Simulated scan of single mutants.
Amino acid sequence: MTKSSKKVAPAAKPAASKAPAKAAAKPAAKVPAAAAVTKIGKSELIDMVGDRAGLSKKDASTALSTLLDVMGESLRAGQTIGLPGVGTLSVKATAARTGVKPGTAEKIQIPAGKKVAFKIASDLKKSL
């Protein structure tokens, strides 16, 4: 028997043909159309705010930067920020806990801390 005859090409083809059949079985409709949309960055937000509010790019940039700075300062101070029609940002305390270090399975102690939580507005949630 030669090396070329040892290869089982017919067995490999059905396995390859099964993979597309499984992929075809999954409906593409489950993937939301919004998944194709990329993230909007700060410069895009500046352009959008400037266009809608009739502001220059510089004024829109100043307004957005100031808004983000004020929001950051408020969250650092532990305040809750309500954004009508969007949701609420708040600071939540996290408890100390035991975790597992990836790769080594070594148990480590994770200290208590804080995190920013977001609760979506019900109107926005319904419209998504």
Rank of each mutant, 00 (worst) to 15 (best):
K115V: 10
I46N: 00
E73Y: 01
M48L: 14
V70P: 09
A77N: 12
A34S: 14
A35N: 15
K101V: 04
A105Q: 15
S122A: 11
K119T: 08
M1G: 09
K26Y: 11
K125D: 06
K13I: 05
A105T: 13
K42Y: 11
A24E: 09
K119M: 06
K18L: 00
G50E: 07
I81F: 00
A9K: 02
L124C: 07
K115I: 08
A35V: 14
R97S: 13
D123V: 14
A11W: 01
K114D: 06
A25I: 04
F118C: 03
A35L: 15
S74H: 05
L124F: 08
K30C: 06
K22G: 01
A53S: 13
S4H: 13
T94S: 14
A23D: 03
S17N: 15
G50H: 01
V8K: 07
D123G: 10
S17K: 13
D47C: 04
K39D: 10
K30P: 01
L45R: 03
S90V: 04
A28W: 07
A96V: 13
S127I: 02
R97T: 11
G99Q: 12
A11V: 09
P32F: 12
K18P: 00
A93H: 12
L45D: 02
V86H: 09
M71F: 04
A23M: 08
I81G: 00
K114L: 14
L128S: 06
V31M: 11
A25N: 08
V49W: 04
D51N: 10
V49C: 08
K114C: 07
I46R: 00
A29Q: 15
S65W: 00
P111F: 01
F118K: 10
V31F: 11
L83M: 08
A77R: 15
T66L: 11
D47I: 05
K126S: 15
A93Q: 10
S56W: 12
V8F: 00
A33R: 15
S5V: 04
S122R: 13
K30D: 08
T80C: 05
V70Y: 10
A11K: 03
V8H: 00
R52K: 14
G103Y: 15
P10D: 03
T38A: 10
S43F: 15
A117F: 03
A33C: 13
K125M: 04
D51F: 12
T80V: 08
I120K: 14
G54V: 05
A16Q: 06
M1S: 13
A53R: 00
T98S: 06
S4T: 05
I108D: 10
A28D: 11
A19C: 10
P102T: 04
S65E: 06
A60K: 01
A105L: 14
L64M: 11
A77S: 13
T98Y: 07
L75E: 01
S74D: 09
F118L: 06
K13F: 02
G72S: 14
V116Y: 03
A96G: 10
G99V: 02
D51R: 14
K119W: 06
V70N: 15
S43Q: 12
